[in-house]
Every structure is written in structure tokens, then in C-alpha cells.
């Protein structure tokens, strides 16, 4: 067993009821092509399922895509469950359809950044590389 450089592991999750996962798949693919290991959860996940996945997969980053308008309900729930489980070292990012006026509130509860439509995938990749907590 020789030591390998740590691979960044990213959970790409789709909570709630919207079934539009094109964006999530594009992000998953872009992260894959940049050499990351992407755990894709599939559609209609509950916040509890997502947090279990983040814990079990020991993810460095959680990307949540929401297009249903329920972001002000789902993000607080996810952040609360992460806190309750003492998960403090995971970078949380959001994507999908999130109105600019809602972004400050989401950042306040711990979402690091929101990447809306039109973001170059390269920018998301670079942001993750620069902001995940380094592993010892």
C-alpha cells in the first residue's frame, strides 16, 4: 500500500422534488474530468439521506442543486443536520435556480458559494480546489 495523493471526493446531491438533473450531471462530469471522485446521489433525496451520504463517503465537498424554489427550506435543513452530526470540515456549495436576493441568507448559514446558470464549470472546479480543507 503506497501512499497516494488524496483524491478530492465530492457529493453531488439533488434534494427535494424537482427532477431536473441536467445541471447536476454536467457538474458531476466536469468534476470527474478534473480528476475528482464524484458521488452522485440521484434525484429526490431527503436532507437526512444527503447528510448520511456525506458522512459515509467522507466527502470533502457537498454540491447541492435545487431548481424547485425550495432552497430556503432545504439548505437550512441540510446545514442543521451537518451541524448536529458535527460535520464542520465539508465545503458546501449550491447551484440551480437561486435568486440573488436569497444568496446572502444562504451564505450566512454556512453555504460557501452559489453557482447559478451560466457559471463556467472551470470556475466551480477551481473554487473547490482552492477551498476544500487540506487533508493531513
Amino acid at each position: 500500500m503506497t501512499e497516494q495523493p488524496h483524491k478530492i471526493r465530492v457529493v453531488v446531491a439533488k434534494p427535494g422534488l424537482d427532477g431536473h438533473d441536467r445541471g447536476a450531471k454536467v457538474i458531476a462530469r466536469a468534476l470527474r474530468d478534473s480528476g475528482m471522485e464524484v458521488i452522485y446521489t440521484g434525484l429526490r433525496q431527503t436532507p437526512k439521506q444527503i447528510v448520511h451520504t456525506v458522512i459515509q463517503e467522507d466527502a470533502d465537498c457537498l454540491c447541492v442543486s435545487i431548481l424547485s424554489g425550495a432552497h430556503n427550506h432545504l439548505f437550512p435543513e441540510i446545514m442543521k443536520l451537518l451541524r448536529e452530526n458535527e460535520v464542520s470540515d465539508v465545503l458546501v456549495l449550491g447551484g440551480g435556480i437561486i435568486p440573488p436576493e436569497d444568496v446572502p441568507g444562504l451564505k450566512q448559514i454556512g453555504v460557501s458559494e452559489i453557482f447559478g446558470p451560466g457559471t463556467a464549470t472551470f470556475d466551480t472546479v477551481r473554487y473547490i480546489r482552492e477551498h476544500v480543507q487540506p487533508r493531513a
Binding site: D33, M36, V38, Q45
Partner: peptide, 27 residues
């Protein structure tokens, strides 16, 4: 690239809230 899409969980929805099941994806 060494990257991977680990998507077996997509089919394992019955188990993901069960505290006595632990799922780990590996590349």
C-alpha cells in the same frame, strides 16, 4: 484523469436513512 463518477447509491434509496447500514463508494 483519475476522476470517477460513483453512482451506485442512486439505486440504493431504501437503505440511506437506515442507521444500521453503511454504504461506501470506491473508485
Amino acid at each position: 484523469t483519475g476522476g470517477a463518477i460513483l453512482a451506485d447509491r442512486v439505486r440504493m434509496k431504501h437503505l440511506q436513512e437506515d442507521p444500521d447500514v453503511f454504504i461506501r463508494s470506491m473508485a
